[in-house]
């Protein structure tokens, strides 16, 4: 068995029947939608604002978690795709005169195409070499955007000229935390559902098989290169969606969003949440932002408690929140079964 990463990979229990799984999924989805819609009226404006941002970065964390789950690889550079989506839409919308909707479409296509080109080169590299390459690309892209003052505003970034409406939605609404929270919540639920379906698909099963044992995958007749490339592209696209929504929300973009610190934070979110389920990195992102919001009194040292928490999680519960939830859920189901004889 060849495993690319020394970090804990998702572990599975023997599968339930597909019907009970679907029923459980439906219940959780409905519950998540209800919470998303009600939260803005139940929670403080500050919690909603922080959670909105958390969900945007949750997409970056989902991208990082997705590539870990489906290829066993650790990317230390996914903020590149998060930031590039923001920059490409920002530059196109501000300097080209294109309608914002077209700028969004072109921007996303450009980022995904670039991710595909990069994937075709770096997905041939094994474990640590891959991680180092992603880090190197991240540092290089950060430096590039930091220094291209003419096009990117350099370290200061630039404000994006957004029209009054985007896809018919007033921009002021998009930039309101309450509205954005609902949009992000629904988008996240749909995306988590889509990623879960992907996992059950033929391609999803194949990518998991390749992660588990690439050699055996070849000897049952599958090319292992292109599925890995597809995994990278999907993960980059997830990060790009988050970056795009974050840019529209803030109306501003700066090199900070594509710095390797952002990639590292996304990795923390993914690992704290756990990558065994698509919702794990989102939960990790919410925890990351909400905890960070509580420790602002530490000033520049706010990473200290988060770093400590990460050490504890990796040492005590390396499968993250997903592993913990799975453990609790199995205990409850076991108790319920015993109760019913």
């Amino acid at each position: 068995m060849v495993l690319e990463s020394s970090l804990p990979l998702p572990t599975r229990q023997a599968s339930d029947s597909s019907r009970s799984r679907a029923a459980r999924w439906l219940v959780w989805s409905v519950l998540a939608v209800v919470v998303t819609v009600l939260a803005p009226t139940l929670c403080s404006a500050r919690v909603i604002a922080v959670s909105s941002q958390a969900l945007m970065f949750g997409f970056l964390a989902m991208g990082t978690g997705f590539i870990h789950k489906h290829s066993g690889l650790l990317s230390f550079g996914h903020a590149v795709w998060f930031g590039l989506a923001g920059y490409s839409v920002g530059i196109l919308a501000t300097f080209s005169g294109l309608p914002i909707e077209l700028a969004i479409a072109i921007g996303l296509v450009l980022v995904v195409a670039l991710a595909a080109l990069v994937a075709m080169v770096i997905m041939r590299s094994p474990g640590i070499a891959f991680s180092m390459l992603t880090l190197a690309i991240n540092v290089a892209v950060f430096e590039l955007f930091n220094r291209m003052r003419g096009a990117t505003g350099g370290a200061d970034g630039f404000s994006i000229a957004l029209p009054e409406t985007i896809f018919g939605v007033p921009t002021t609404s998009l930039q309101s935390p309450q509205t954005m929270f609902v949009i992000m919540g629904i988008t996240t639920i749909v995306t988590v559902g889509a990623l879960t379906l992907f996992e059950r698909s033929h391609l999803g099963q194949l990518t998991l098989a390749i992660r588990e044992n690439p050699e055996r995958a070849r000897f049952i007749g599958y090319d292992i290169y292109w599925p890995r490339v597809i995994v990278f592209v999907i993960s980059a696209a997830l990060a790009a969606i988050g970056g795009l929504l974050f840019t529209l929300y803030t109306g501003f973009v700066s090199p900070e969003v594509l710095g390797f610190m952002t990639s590292g934070q996304a990795m923390i979110m993914a690992m704290v949440g756990g990558t065994a389920a698509a919702w794990g990195p989102v939960a990790g992102a919410l925890m990351f932002f909400l905890v960070r919001d509580r420790v602002t009194f530490l000033g520049d040292h706010w990473m200290l408690p988060l770093g400590s928490a990460l050490i504890v999680v990796m040492a005590v519960w390396p499968t993250g929140l997903v592993g913990a939830a799975d453990f609790v859920s199995r205990r409850i189901r076991g108790a319920a079964r015993r109760l019913h004889g």
Binding site: M1, R12, S15, L208, A209, E212, N213, E215, R216, F219
Partner: peptide, 8 residues
């Protein structure tokens, strides 16, 4: 033995 340990 060369199988996929985490697949059924």
């Amino acid at each position: 033995t060369s199988i996929f340990p985490e697949l059924t």
